[in-house]
Design a protein around this nucleic acid. Structure first.
Lengths: 231, 231
DNA sequence: ATTTAGACGACTGTCGACAATTTGGCGCTC
DNA sequence: GAGCGCCAAATTGTCGACAGTCGTCTAAAT
């Protein structure tokens, strides 16, 4: 089991705001609150049985992750991104992932590189099986990228990547990895990247990471377009 | 029309929190508050003649930019970065700049690419003149990078890059660009990048952008080390 | 002299109330 | 019937107060 390093071991009672922020975050990410939904402080406060102060703090926390947006005196709404904006986010995510892989190749131990082979194998297996659901395939690719990101040795890079990933997932959901062609391409790229990692070729691996991201980017845009058109 | 916000305390035009956040931000960036300084809500509130509520909001805003850090029930302090952490930030900044240049090459007009030549020329001139102060040289390289960043067509990338740049500047200040060798290297790399841009070679330009960032990164680490050692 | 329990001060977390502002509906005028 | 300004509800911004926690200082015990 991989114990989450960022988990605070705190014997202190958690401030109400953190709890509420967590609840709201989950609700937003699971689509309980849809983009554009207005979050009224008093309403949330009443629902949780607290005053508005901790709710305001919670909303500020969500704002830090760009999960909600706030306009002065006009309230807080769940962030709503256009297709162009989602595309922007993928570009940032791609840049960060490329950097992550570059650092990983430079710093990871041989054992850690070998660890990635396990994830690549899993991706390969799932890509070959047409009965696999998009959600399961997404989980596998996610796990693979997280494995690398956690070992790149740069906490800020890691945080930025996770933030972008978390946000983008609200939009293309699991639909994006449905096509066989896309899965095959990802499996192929992952294999090539693994080889570059083993050869300690940071440039090549980084470039392949970029191409993996671009592939996901393209798939996401297709999924979003399909999602908006038919209704 | 939005009237001048720099008026001491205006209750109407903008929420108090925004005004206070701006004041604090300026104070931090200009070194009035040094890293590690504790920001006590009540004290700030009294100084501005307001209650603690808007001060809390202001501190949250600063937290979004990572200018201050907050630990539950332990208050807010001006962000204090170790050399390792500054190094992390430069890695992120480098990744973003590489992506910026890649997009710029893809999307910018020929005229915009030509515009960069002006900045490169200025960097070249300043690098050749030993009497130029580090501050002036920094301003020139800054302006050049901002020129590109503003035209990359990705607002999130731009925001992220600026955030990293703003923060890192509090640390290495202007000291980093003092050596002639470093200036010469930057001028050389900028020239090469310009040529790659003109040839519309996104990969090459992006790679050179990375190397420019790495050069700045290295210079910054030297400056920081020099700053901490002698005291 | 060092360590540890208790108390004190300082500060943050939370609360309820009031003030200010935006939004939407209503009636009025043209 | 359409456009415009006014009124009222809804919601955020700000305030002062109280409660709870953290760090420290003191004092007693070993």
């Amino acid at each position: 089991m991989i114990s989450s390093v960022s988990e605070p071991i705190r014997p202190v009672p958690e401030p109400l705001a953190s709890f509420i922020a967590g609840e709201l975050m989950g609700a937003i990410e699971q689509g309980h609150y849809k983009p554009g939904t207005r979050l009224v402080e008093a309403e949330i406060a009443q629902r949780f049985g607290v005053s508005r102060a901790p709710v305001r703090e919670a909303l500020r926390m969500l704002m830090k992750d760009d999960l909600v947006m706030r306009r002065p005196r006009r309230g807080t709404v769940v962030t709503e991104l256009s297709a162009a904006e989602v595309s922007e986010m993928y570009e940032v995510r791609s840049a960060l992932y490329a950097a992550v892989v570059r650092l990983f190749v430079r710093r990871a131990s041989d054992g850690e590189v070998a660890g990635y082979a396990v994830w690549r194998q899993r991706i390969n297996d799932l890509a070959a099986d047409a009965t696999v659901t998009p959600a399961r395939f997404v989980d596998a690719t996610q796990a693979a990228s997280i494995y690398v990101v956690e070992r790149c040795g740069n906490a800020r890079l890691q945080a930025g990547f996770r933030k972008m990933t978390r946000q983008s997932y609200r939009y293309y959901a699991e639909m994006a990895h449905g096509t066989v062609a896309h899965r095959r391409e990802l499996a192929c790229l992952a294999t090539a990247m693994l080889e570059a990692m083993q050869a300690r070729d940071a440039e090549a691996a980084s470039m392949l990471a970029w191409r993996i991201s671009e592939s996901n980017h393209a798939a996401a845009l297709v999924a979003i377009a399909a999602q908006e058109k038919p209704g």
